[in-house]
Simulated assay, not measured.
Amino acid sequence: MTRTPLDHVACSIARATDLFADAWTALIMRDVLLGITRFDDLAHDLGISRKVLAARLARLVEEGILTRERYQDRPPREHYRATAKGEELYPVLLALMAWGDRWCAGPEGPPARIRHLDCGHDTAPVTCCAQCGGPLTLANTTQLPGPGGRVGPGTRVLGPFLLERG
Rank of each mutant, 00 (worst) to 15 (best):
L89C: 14
Q143P: 00
L138I: 06
W24L: 10
Y90R: 15
D31H: 14
P76F: 00
A82H: 06
I65N: 03
I36S: 06
A55C: 06
L46D: 06
W103Y: 04
L89V: 12
A54C: 09
L94H: 08
D118Q: 15
R102D: 07
T127I: 15
L34Y: 08
E108C: 05
T2S: 08
V32Q: 05
T2W: 07
R115D: 06
A84V: 10
R102M: 02
I13Q: 10
L117N: 12
G148Y: 11
Y71P: 02
H8G: 11
K51T: 15
A26L: 15
L93I: 09
P75Y: 00
A98K: 12
L144N: 06
G35H: 08
R50F: 05
P5A: 04
V52C: 09
P91H: 03
G154L: 07
R74Y: 02
M29A: 10
R70T: 14
P76A: 15
T25W: 02
L89W: 15
R156A: 03
F20N: 03
D73G: 00
S49F: 04
A105H: 07
R113Q: 11
A26D: 09
P145H: 09
G109N: 06
W99A: 11
A16K: 13
L94Y: 01
T25G: 03
L162H: 04
C104D: 12
F161I: 04
R150P: 06
C128K: 12
P5K: 05
A58S: 13
T83W: 07
A55G: 03
T67C: 02
F39H: 11
T123L: 08
D45N: 12
T141N: 07
G146E: 01
C129G: 01
Y80E: 10
L27P: 04
G152S: 02
P111V: 12
G35K: 06
Y80C: 06
P125M: 04
A16Q: 13
P160F: 01
Q72H: 10
H121D: 11
P135C: 11
V9T: 13
G120C: 09
W99L: 11
R3N: 05
Q131S: 09
P110V: 07
V9G: 04
L57N: 07
K85I: 01
G120P: 01
Q131L: 04
E87M: 15
R38E: 13
G106R: 12
C119I: 01
R59A: 11
E63D: 14
D41E: 12
